[in-house]
Design a protein around this nucleic acid. Structure first.
Length: 396
DNA sequence: TCTGGGGTCCTAGGACCC
DNA sequence: TCTGGGGTCCTAGGACCC
């Protein structure tokens, strides 16, 4: 019997900021994500601010318009990460299989633990919620179900600070009351398409034959039908390799100077390469992302002969891709709003290669030395040469 | 109102191979 | 002269999630 438990921290980013900055605690209207005057979107809003219609993903400017009296605060990733680790440590006492789906969400597998918890997992969920509260001062909601989808939907229903269990056999009844757009994987685009066809609620799908549904929405019918009846994945894989690793930045103002852009690209690449080495991974494919100032977003990628974790090799590919992609920016006579780099096609780094070409060995020695300096003095202690070009140009 | 940053997964077409 | 079918790898773009 599969039993999955989904833990979802309530207003996670807001609460972590409040813990770290006591002056934020008394503010009922708090919006975390970016500052008032910055380009950005809302990461999380306090429950008070949500009453004004503010929600995650909304542009900061719009949130300011809806609730000018709110406080806008930019939190720090390191604080979120540390809080997330603290929560995970509590969760790991309850199940050997804990998979963090993001900083503020986790799945726990309780399959095969019927002896310990024969009927309901609610008492365990309650204990878990109390221990998280006691040890991290964070509130959470917990959903329990026979698969990941049901567990997640149950925790959505339980928010905030609630518990909900949907036992095997009750999935259809539980889902019958939900909107299709509540299902994970049904986003704004799909929901709008189905609404046009008159499909908005899960019970409509439940009541249709698959053939009928297929005439309406085509090839997605089978998958939707299965989900509407409560089927979903019930296995958790904790030890998968990550699929990609990336850094991107929306510039504070649009840029048209390729030298400045290449300088930023070299820093972003150094960050990704550093993280690859940190996690002992190598990448075979490098992907560049450029967003033009009219929001047209372009990606270019290249697969290398050999996988690598070296700044110089990743940046070599990144710069080539950038020059190709930037030609289009020029042709369209636009500026660049965002630039980013991703390493994909990841693998586990091999043990030292005795037959590595001498040049590559020198690059590796250099990289190891740079990592040591950075570990001691911080990332900014070493700057890639490519990043200096722009500085020199500005000084001139 | 003016649109972040970190990810995952899917699709479609083309090259290439047998 | 016209033209299989299956499989893998690669690229670009897009939907979606938190």
């Amino acid at each position: 019997m599969r039993r999955i438990l989904h833990v979802d921290l309530d207003a996670f980013f807001v609460e972590v900021c409040r813990q770290r900055y006591p002056e934020l605690r008394k503010l009922e209207l708090l919006v975390v994500g970016g500052r008032r005057d910055q380009r950005g979107v809302v990461q999380s809003a306090s429950y008070g601010a949500r009453k004004f219609g503010i929600h995650a993903g909304m542009p900061i400017g719009e949130a300011v318009r809806l609730c000018p009296q709110a406080t806008f605060f930019q939190g720090s990733f390191v604080h979120y990460r540390d809080a997330s680790h603290a929560v995970r440590a509590v969760l790991e006492r309850f199940s050997p299989t804990v998979v963090m789906a993001s900083l503020d969400e986790a799945y726990l597998d309780f399959a095969g633990m019927e002896r310990l918890y024969p009927v309901s997992l609610l008492p365990i969920a309650e204990q878990l919620r109390n221990e998280i509260r006691r040890e991290t001062s964070l509130d959470c909601s917990v959903g329990i179900g026979p698969n990941r989808m049901i567990a997640k939907l149950a925790s959505d229903c339980a928010k905030p600070r609630g518990l909900m269990e949907v036992r095997a056999g009750w999935e259809e009844g539980f889902l019958a009351g939900l909107l299709l757009k509540a299902l994970p994987g049904v986003g704004p685009v799909t929901a709008a398409r189905w609404t046009e066809l008159g499909l908005t609620e899960v019970h409509q799908v439940q009541g249709m034959q698959e053939r009928e549904l297929e005439r309406l929405i085509g090839g997605d019918a089978r998958a939707l039908k299965l989900r509407a009846h409560g089927h979903g994945g019930s296995t958790l894989r904790a030890d998968r390799l990550p699929r990609s690793m990336s850094r991107e930045t929306t510039l504070s103002r649009d840029l048209g100077d390729p030298v400045e852009l290449e300088a930023i690209l070299s820093l972003l690449t150094a960050r990704v390469a550093g993280q690859l080495r940190d996690e002992q991974l190598v990448a075979r494919t490098v992907a560049l992302k450029l967003r033009h100032d009219d929001f047209k977003t372009v990606t270019r990628r290249r697969t290398l002969e050999t996988a690598t974790d070296l700044d110089a090799e990743l940046y070599g590919a990144a710069r080539t891709l950038f020059r190709e992609a930037f030609a289009e920016v020029r042709r369209r006579n636009r500026g660049v709003r965002l630039i980013g780099i991703a390493a994909t096609n990841l693998g586990v780094a091999a043990e030292a290669d005795l037959f590595e070409p001498a040049q590559r060995q020198r690059l590796r020695d250099l990289t190891v030395a740079v990592d040591k300096v950075r570990e001691k003095y911080g990332f900014g202690a070493v700057t890639p040469g490519a990043a200096l070009g722009a500085r020199r140009r500005r000084e001139q």
